[in-house]
Amino acid sequence: MAMTARQRARVSLYVQAGIFVVAMAALILATDWKTVTDNVFNFGKIGPMFPDIILIGLKNTLIYTFLGFIVGLSGGLLLALMKLSTFPLYRWIATGYIEFFRGIPALLVFIAFGYGVPLAFGVQWSVTVVVMVSLGMVAAAYIAETLRAGLQAVPKGQMEAARSLGMPMWRSMVTIVIPQAFRIVLPPLTNEVILLTKDSSLIYVLGLTASQYELTKFGRDGISSLGAGLTPLLVAGAFYLVVTIPLSLLARKFESRSARTKR
């Protein structure tokens, strides 16, 4: 009783669906729902988190992300241009920077700028500055590579056309090449913002005052103060999604738009 290819494919699909259903059922039966409800889905007790988790936490997460992105974007553009420079020293510096900051955990950068730099240089940076610098310097490394690819994706003829009209090098870059590069990298750049949004949580390693709390810190605080188990973290996670999912959709929209037209 040989089966045709189509029959085999259908049977295979049924088997896979069956395995999935059995696994889910086993998971549901094995779960201690009382404990789960008390510790993860205990939404009755999270009232005190509001409205501060939105007014302070979400607001601070957005501010930290924005500041980090501004530093990252400016630094990234500078590094990308250095990496494409004809002057070897610039290329080496940019390459060294990018490899270093992409290669170490962002958490270490936060610790370095939060504790190391104040100790070493006797300066006391505010939390905002630490976030801006730490997040920005890590982001710059990633954004630099994205922008470099974007700048290289602009056809060489664009620069030649601009130069042949008498525009100096930097003017051609600023007016003609960089605007086109940004259009090309808009989707990956949006993804960088998503990564930054999540990385802004690393600020928890620093001592924060209540008004400096961001989403994750609110979640962690809630765990110890509300007696609702991990539920506050679930709430904090939900707020991250409120930010990141629209950004994801935005990136996809940019992508389909740039696929349609080069404008």
Binding site: G157, Q158, A161, Q180, R183, K262, R263
Partner: peptide, 9 residues
Amino acid sequence: FQQFNLFPH
């Protein structure tokens, strides 16, 4: 130029 090289933006 052969490829026009107009500024697409």
